[in-house]
Amino acid sequence: MGGGPDSTAGINHQHANEPHGSGIATRLNWLRAGVLGANDGIVSVAAIVVGVAGATSDVGALLAATLAAVIGGAISMALGEYVSVSSSSDSQNALIAKESRELEQMPEEELAELAGIYESKGVSAATARQVALELTRHNALGAHLEAELGIDPNEVASPWHAAFASFIAFVAGAALPALAILLPAEGLRVPVTFAATLLALAGTGGLGAYLGGARILPAVTRVVIGGALALMATFLIGSWLGTSGIV
């Protein structure tokens, strides 16, 4: 009597603690990209402002350097992301258009190709053809794009959205070192910026590792050590420029 694992009540085998449905991978990729963008904002702006602080204590110079680093870095990140995603989406759209033409011009050949894909995965020839027929009736283009190319036409990224997200992520990350260098008293600017930057890097490194399913401690260690080396290098260079009278 019902109640077994194969009963009608148990048809839905999705686990409550596992993500299902379309768009999960895309959303995780966007989130990881946001974390990386914030990480870039933290490191690059912190390195610049610490270097300038090592050379001069002039607040005007620090403010100018901070604004230039934040605005220039954010625009550069957004532009790079726009170009990158534009190239990727153009390629995906070209493949979608090509597959659509092939379905219109040679539907039988495309049906056989789809069946062959499932057969190559271990499905019997009869079952593979039946699966191909049913998927074709439901959504021919979507079935072929997923099976042949691994593309979901509903998840082609927008270059403008990517650029905007990258811009915001960079500014969000850059805000911390920018405030840390400008708000404290002169003697505390550099140590406060060092501490705030390394703590922020530990957070973004840990979050990035968590989202990617990697070990958190090694990821945090790498990013914190790398950030500390960058800050020390720019501070030492700035201090040398300041004491040598070059600036």
Rank of each mutant, 00 (worst) to 15 (best):
G34M: 04
S84L: 02
A78E: 03
L103C: 06
E18I: 14
V45H: 00
E104M: 06
E81N: 11
E18Q: 11
T127A: 14
V85Q: 06
S88V: 06
L67H: 10
V52L: 06
R129Q: 11
L133D: 12
N29K: 11
G72K: 08
A97Q: 10
N12H: 14
G122I: 04
Q105D: 05
L63F: 09
G54E: 04
A47L: 04
L62N: 07
I75T: 14
Y82L: 05
A16D: 07
S124W: 09
G60I: 05
H13Y: 05
K121V: 01
A53M: 04
D90T: 15
L111F: 11
A69G: 01
T127L: 12
L133A: 12
T66Q: 07
R27C: 05
Y118A: 06
V59N: 12
L62H: 12
K98L: 04
S86A: 05
V35Q: 01
A74K: 03
I75P: 00
S44M: 01
A47W: 00
G72Q: 04
Q130T: 10
N93W: 08
T136N: 05
G54S: 08
L63Q: 13
R32I: 14
S86M: 02
K98Q: 08
S57A: 14
L111S: 08
I24T: 10
D58P: 03
V131W: 12
S120F: 04
G54M: 06
G116D: 02
P19N: 13
A33R: 15
S120K: 13
R32S: 11
M77K: 09
G51E: 02
L95K: 15
H13M: 07
A38Q: 01
L111P: 00
R32N: 13
G73Y: 01
V50M: 11
A69Q: 03
R32P: 00
A126W: 09
A115I: 12
E109K: 12
G41C: 01
G51T: 14
V43L: 04
S87L: 05
H15W: 09
P19F: 08
R101W: 04
N12A: 12
A61T: 07
E102D: 04
I71P: 02
Y82E: 07
Y118N: 09
R27T: 14
E108Y: 13
R32T: 15
G122K: 14
N17Y: 11
Q105F: 05
Q105I: 10
V50A: 09
Y118W: 11
A128R: 14
E102L: 02
L103Q: 11
A68V: 09
L111A: 12
A115F: 10
G34R: 02
G21P: 01
G41A: 03
I42W: 00
A112C: 02
G21C: 03
W30C: 07
N12M: 09
A33S: 15
G80R: 07
N39F: 01
Q14P: 00
L114I: 12
A128H: 13
G21S: 06
L103D: 08
D90M: 07
R32E: 10
I24N: 08
P107E: 09
S84Q: 08
A16R: 15
N93F: 08
I75V: 15
S22Q: 08
S100V: 07
A47C: 11
Y82T: 13
V49L: 02
T127Y: 15
V35T: 12
R27K: 14
S57M: 09
